[in-house]
């Protein structure tokens, strides 16, 4: 999709159904939350279908993380909106929430039986390894889009150190700090000097 296109186009019904099925599939198989979902979103929306660009995904991930609410749902909504406006956003949100809803209603009914079952515990142990891999893959894919120069790398290091040294510090402050640093560095300082080495 053309990056300069700010007004998303209307999707035909068939594509909306397709979008629903893809987000439903993502919701049904993703363990580990919104960030783990990103790598599947990137495979399905960008690599397979070219609905959004890699840079769009990086932008959407940053905005989804900054806004209040559930990150995975925010990502679905913003991706959907980018692809086909409000209807697509709502369809994508519904698709990614519905599997949770169905699964949890079933699990809540049977949970005392399920939690002691050896097969269930085996499945969960296997899947926990896959969740680690999802994060590795997301980290790798996002690293190229999210850190584009030494300044970005510096902000990444500062943020990571803050998160590990002060685990109880709210992420909100670190994100706001990043936003402020980005504005001061890239807009006020580097742009004035002309040429930021970016783009």
């Amino acid at each position: 999709m053309d990056n300069s296109n700010s007004n998303p186009q209307k999707l035909p019904l068939k594509e909306l159904l397709n979008l629903f099925l893809i987000t439903f599939k993502i919701g049904a198989v993703t363990f580990g939350g919104g960030m783990a979902m990103l790598t599947i979103f990137s495979t399905e929306f960008s690599e397979k279908r070219n609905w959004v660009s890699g840079d769009d995904i990086a932008d959407i991930a940053a905005v989804a993380q900054t806004l209040p609410g559930i990150i995975a749902v925010n990502v679905s909504l913003l991706m959907g909106y980018r692809i086909g406006g409000v209807p697509a956003a709502l369809v994508a949100a519904l698709g990614s929430v519905l599997p949770s809803f169905i699964v949890l209603c079933i699990v809540a009914t049977f949970y005392s039986i399920l939690s002691d079952n050896v097969y269930v515990r085996g499945i969960l142990r296997g899947v926990s390894g896959a969740v680690v891999a999802l994060f590795v893959s997301t980290l790798y894919k996002m690293s190229k889009k999210n850190v584009k120069d030494y300044w970005g790398f510096g902000i990444f290091i500062i943020a990571a150190v803050l998160m590990f040294v002060f685990p109880s510090l709210s992420v909100v402050y670190i994100i706001l700090g990043g936003a402020l640093l980005g504005f001061v560095l890239y807009y006020l300082i580097l742009r004035k000097r002309g040429g930021t080495g970016r783009d």
Binding site: M35, L38, A58, D59, A61, A62, V63, Q65, T66, F135, T138, L139, M142, S143, K145, N146, V147, K148, W151, G152, F153, G154, I155, F156, A159, A160, M163, V171, I174, I175, G177, G178, A179, L180, L181, G182, F183, L185, Y186, Y187, R191, R198
Partner: peptide, 15 residues
């Protein structure tokens, strides 16, 4: 510019 500052933080969150 603002997003360029937030994106590395998002990467740190993923880490």
């Amino acid at each position: 510019s603002t997003l360029s500052g937030i994106k590395p933080v998002v990467l740190a969150l993923i880490l």
